[in-house]
Design a protein around this nucleic acid. Structure first.
Length: 118
DNA sequence: CTTTTGATTGTTGCC
DNA sequence: GGCAACAATCAAAAG
């Protein structure tokens, strides 16, 4: 997406539950698809879940998640920086999986003789 | 090449 | 163990 400099192209369409609904994993197309790293929010959750819980001991998952989301949104890129930084690392790690995935794929293409003796 | 969708990540709390 | 909102993110597929 090196084009369209700035435009709410994706804007997390998840405005309604129509498109995403109950994201249920369907049949994956890739043989060994590399899994995405934890989004900054995910990492942010790990750290804030306890804090939010401490401040909202009465709030259950629903409220927790909601508040967490609000906090996350309220957070500035500077605050998210450390979380994003971590995410970047995850990305790098993910890249390895992707590389292996791609490599294996290519290898299979050349030589389908690839499998791990279970 | 661009847009869209789909699949994935982790949290808690319940059954 | 799976699912519920929350946000993000990337990769592949469709256009």
């Amino acid at each position: 997406m090196p084009k369209v400099a700035k435009k709410e192209t994706k804007v997390t369409k998840r405005g309604k539950n129509e498109e995403v609904k109950k994201r249920k994993r369907k049949a994956k197309k890739d043989p060994n698809a590399p899994k995405n790293p934890m989004s900054a929010y995910l990492l942010f959750c790990e750290e804030w879940r306890e804090k939010v819980k401490a401040q909202n001991p009465d709030s259950s998952f629903g409220e927790l998640g909601r508040l967490l989301g609000e906090q996350w949104r309220a957070y500035t890129d500077d605050q998210k920086a450390p979380y994003i930084a971590k995410h970047e690392k995850a990305k790098a790690k993910y890249a390895t999986e992707k590389a292996a995935y791609d490599a294996k794929k290519a290898q299979e293409d050349e030589d389908e003789d690839e499998d791990e003796s279970d």
